[in-house]
């Protein structure tokens, strides 16, 4: 316990200190920066909600929504079989399990923005690389969460199905699927929320959505408009989250 604590403090100091291997964290610098007059904070004080009514922001929001809807649905659909294979119970054999598990770990270790960078390099800018990036991101999230659920299901129906001579696919269909369906639906909706939030930043690497608009106003130094768009985005995210929370409660 004490050893662990010392290690923890040591790690924090090593990572935070201002030396060759530290990030040079300093509270005074933060205080100085925040108290100095600066453009983003001045913009926040005179936030311009009028930016939301322009066609630029409207198209951005629409694109963000379209991207999130498509990629969540496509990603969640493909994640269901992968989730089955990603659990010891559902995989037809050890080899499939090992391959799917490795693939899923790699997919999940690559952050959404990095996917976007890769796809922008592959097919150039626009909504398509954004959709593809969110698709892979959703695939990783939903597969992982759902396969964790499969590990915790009741084994009674599985044994019953096997005892009455069900084949492996039949067992999955009638013993496993009914048990995980509510959780799976709930994870898919959670993933939609994540995608909506993520699609706000994909625009910074050219992958479409409302992020493109935020990046445009930032490039122009119009921070009042940046914060206007961010505020609008905030409202959209919170509203969607509320609706989704109600629906998810009904499902579980």
């Amino acid at each position: 316990m004490i050893g662990g604590l010392i290690g923890l403090v040591g790690f924090t100091v090593a990572a935070g200190a201002d030396w060759r291997y530290g990030i040079g964290f300093s509270v005074t610098e933060i205080w100085d920066g925040l108290t100095r007059s600066n453009a983003p904070m001045r913009g926040l004080a005179e936030i311009d909600l009028g930016a939301l009514t322009g066609s630029r922001a409207r198209d951005g929001f629409l694109e963000t929504l379209q991207m999130a809807v498509m990629s969540s649905i496509a990603g969640a659909l493909i994640a269901l079989p992968l989730a089955l294979f990603n659990s010891k119970l559902g995989a037809p054999n050890r080899a499939v399990y090992a391959v799917v598990k490795l693939l899923n770990n790699v997919i999940r270790a690559i952050p959404d923005l990095l996917w976007a960078l890769l796809f922008v390099a592959a097919v150039s800018i626009g909504a398509l690389p954004g959709i593809l990036a969110l698709f892979f991101f959703s695939l990783g999230v939903v597969t992982k969460l759902t396969s964790d659920t499969i590990d915790g299901i009741d084994h009674g129906p599985v044994e019953a199905a096997r005892a009455s001579g069900a084949s492996h696919p039949q067992m999955l269909r009638f013993a496993v699927l009914p048990q995980i369906l509510p959780a799976y639906t709930s994870f898919s909706m959670y993933c939609f929320e994540l995608n909506l939030r993520a699609s706000a930043v994909l625009g910074f690497v050219g992958a479409g959505g409302i992020g493109t608009v935020i990046d445009f106003y930032r490039g122009q130094g119009q921070w009042d408009r940046v914060w206007g768009v961010v505020a609008g985005f905030l409202v959209v995210v919170i509203v969607v989250e509320r609706i989704s929370a109600v629906l998810r409660k009904r499902l579980l």
């Binding site: 990030i23 920066g33 983003p40």
Partner: peptide
């Protein structure tokens, strides 16, 4: 609720003009 809905990157782009390019903006 407010910081939960805003992605890190947006915080980062707003903090870079304040703290300059570098790890401090990312950390905050």
């Amino acid at each position: 609720n407010i910081p939960r809905a805003i992605p890190e990157i947006i915080f980062a782009v707003a903090l870079i003009p304040i703290f300059g390019l570098g790890p401090l903006a990312g950390t905050v």
